[in-house]
Amino acid sequence: MSLVVDILSAICLLTGSFLILSGVIGVIRFPDFYTRIHAAGITETLAASLILIGLMLIAGWGLVLFKLILILLFILFTSPTASHALGKAAWKSGLKPHGLVNKHDED
């Protein structure tokens, strides 16, 4: 039983690590702000949840589990909201997506 939990938590941790790595590579490599926010926003939520779930599996019952669930809830709430706020603020400030810029310049 404990071995199964260990393996599950290891899988969760490793998948989470892979996802954040891919997310940050997207943030580094993508050409403009909106694609970057896409890379960061999408991977961040799932990766953070996976890592926290992996930790929960290690933690077992108790106050620690409760706090981890609390952190997970907060991250699930705040991370998409922050991404939304960023995207909206960037759009309002007049930042256009990569492809659109050229079109407008030519007009």
């Binding site: 943030v27 702000f33 970057r36 890592i51 981890l68 952190i71 991250i75 960023l86 400030s93």
Partner: peptide, 20 residues
């Protein structure tokens, strides 16, 4: 906004790092 995005990313990673 890129900088704020990176800062946000950094922040969530710090949360995970402290937990781990």
């Amino acid at each position: 906004f890129d900088r704020v995005l990176a800062g946000n990313l950094f922040g969530t990673k710090v949360v995970l790092l402290i937990a781990v």
